[in-house]
Design a protein around this nucleic acid. Structure first.
Length: 550
RNA sequence: GGCCCCGUGGUCAAGCGGUUAAGACAUCGCCCUUUCACGGCGGAGACAUGGGUUCGAUUCCCGUCGGGGUCACCA
């Protein structure tokens, strides 16, 4: 009895690995093209850290003329959630991070290296597992959970390393015929990798992000095939990334310490090892301590959080890119209108330790991006958001599209556009008062500032309506009239004038215009008043002013 | 606890033995033909710590402290 017999008893019907090696040939890509992947488990909502990985992986692949694919790692069927795959696929799509290959919905996929869902690749893993058994590098393990637990306690008591290795790996030493016997008797077992590593020796690993890291060799006989017949992460990683032609494994740095194992697996399977780039996680500060953004505790960990808040997807992508390579913002400053696809991302410039998530910075980026949109773009994007999240805003904007466009166009499209909207959920507050129906819905409560004498206010407004206001004035005329009005009531035409001789005036043009502004809009702070009047139109302006002094 | 990684202003970060230690966000002040926003200018604000090595260390080495990761039939 030899290893081949054992292999045949365990996997009597699987194909030879040469079948798969031929079926999935080496990719025909140009020199330097990088193949990356995003390989999540459908076990919960899409995490911002996952998006971060996807952004980086896609960017690196695209900018080298390579391939970015999506592989679903659903080998832990206990933890799987409903619509997990769909959520991942849709989230990627929303953030413009759709893969070149891989799953495109719960069932379907594109690309020649599939299936891209691990649960559908069972027989492939088994073929490679069989190959390892034949080589004497994998063996069945009959240890029960309790046995393992006992062993572990002994190890801890003896202050030894825990795990299944060396003298502790009892099933490794079961004679082949005995193992076959057990299997034939129906004993339950899993498959373990037979590690040839020696922890006294170091392996050198060069990580594309972390740099040189030395580890002891792995000597753990880790599980490669679980009792449900599916592979563990480690084994699936080696098989899949080999067959799918991944050149750069870009993943979270929680995997860094398994590199010795993975390298060993690639080695023993006869695969060329990929390059590894281990990304530091996005952190959050709590009670003075840093920790990974948590799915449970932090709403901002879910990508849906940003969608719901109405932060443009583009802004989130740019923010993430900014965390990845901090020189992005310099590039952005020099190339304000260039698509972020043009930015050259460099893995070796990535930080080795995790950055704290900075919502303020995200919002700043978001403001910049929204400020660049045309009124039409704002309209379309805001409606698309409101469609799902804000019925009121949708109605408001759609009532009179033409008018809405004028409102959204205020101080937009010029050289220094307004940057006061960071997310679509800000928009309603920002513009409601420009709609008469809403404005007159409730009696406005005016809080005047410097000038608050009712009579004085009434006179100022009346005078403005009767003597100065003309909707057709150009900006300069309009401006001068505001100064004339100021003068009429004993206020300085210029702020500077007033500051030089405050005793000569009751105030300055700013005080007067504030009165008009508040009567007109109900607010002390608004965008340019001239533009607002133009948008409101003659009737509305007069009506608003008259109502205000009633 | 073992193994591994990290430690520059509040945050993200340049920096690779000699620098007035960049820049961005945040913050403060001033300016910007009237508010707000934008923009401009300026201010405050940092090399965790103790030893080495060196003519000279933020940069190199060691210790300490602090932070993070990992030690599953989870990924």
């Amino acid at each position: 009895m030899d290893y081949k017999d054992l292999a045949n008893v365990i996997f009597p019907n699987v194909k030879n690995i040469s079948y798969y090696e031929e079926k999935y040939p080496v990719r025909n890509l140009k020199e330097g093209a990088v193949v990356t992947r995003y390989a999540p488990s459908p076990t919960g909502f899409m995490h911002i850290g996952g998006l971060y990985q996807a952004v980086i992986a896609k960017k690196i692949a695209n900018q080298t003329g390579g391939v970015f694919f999506l592989r679903i790692e659903d080998t832990d069927q206990k933890r799987e959630i409903e619509n997990g795959v769909l959520d991942i696929v849709n989230s990627l799509k929303e953030f413009c991070m759709s893969p070149d290959e891989g799953m495109i919905d719960e069932e379907n996929e594109i690309g020649d290296y599939g299936p891209y869902k691990q649960s559908l690749r069972k027989e492939i893993y088994q073929a490679y597992a069989k190959y390892l058994i034949e080589k004497g590098l994998a063996y069945p393990c009959f240890c029960k959970a309790e046995t393992l637990e006992e062993m572990r306690q002994k190890q801890e008591a003896a202050k030894e390393r825990t795990g299944y290795y060396g003298v502790w790996s009892r099933c490794r030493h079961i004679p082949i015929n005995e193992a076959i016997e057990k299997i034939k008797n129906g004993e339950e077992y899993i498959l373990r990798f037979k590690s040839l590593g020696n922890p006294e020796k170091k392996i050198k690993h060069h990580d594309v992000i972390k740099g040189n890291v030395d580890f002891p060799e792995n000597d753990q006989d880790i599980v490669i095939i679980k009792s449900d017949g599916l592979p563990t992460y480690h084994f699936a990683h080696a098989v899949d990334d080999h067959l799918m032609g991944t050149t750069h494994v870009i993943r979270g740095d929680e995997w860094l310490s398994s590199v010795p194992l993975h390298l060993q697996l690639f080695q023993e399977l006869g695969f060329k090892a990929p390059k590894y780039a281990h990304i530091a996680p996005i952190m959050k500060e709590e009670d003075g301590a840093k920790r990974k953004l948590s799915k449970r505790k932090d709403p901002e960990a879910a990508v849906s959080f940003y969608l719901e808040a109405g932060i443009p997807e583009e802004a989130v992508d740019e923010y993430l890119l900014n965390i990845a390579n901090s020189n992005f913002e310099q590039w952005r400053k020099q190339n304000p209108d260039v698509d972020m696809k043009e930015f050259d991302l460099q893995l070796n410039k990535m930080s080795v330790s995790g950055a704290l998530f900075d919502m303020v910075k995200l919002l700043d980026i978001s403001k910049r991006i929204i400020s660049k949109y045309s009124a039409k773009e704002v309209y379309d994007k805001a409606i698309a958001w409101a469609e799902i999240h804000d019925e009121n805003l949708k109605k408001l904007l759609q009532r009179d599209t033409e008018y809405s466009l004028k409102v959204l166009g205020i101080e937009r499209g010029n050289e220094k556009p307004r940057k006061d909207i960071a997310k679509w959920s800000d928009l309603e507050y920002n513009i409601v008062y420009l709609f008469d129906e809403e404005f007159f819905k409730e009696k406005q409560e005016y809080e005047f500032q410097k000038i608050n004498d009712k009579d004085e206010i009434k006179k100022i407004v009346e005078s403005y309506i009767s003597k100065y206001f003309n909707i057709n004035d150009d900006k300069e005329t309009w401006f001068n009239k505001m100064k004339d009005l100021s003068e009429e009531f004993g206020y300085a035409r210029e702020v500077k004038e007033y500051k030089q001789n405050p005793e000569n005036y009751k105030g300055h043009v700013g005080d007067i215009s504030t009165v008009i502004r508040i009567c007109l809009t109900g607010r002390a702070n608004t965008p340019d008043m001239y533009e607002i009047m133009k948008v409101l139109g003659k009737e509305s302006v007069v009506k608003r002013l008259q109502e205000a002094i009633k």
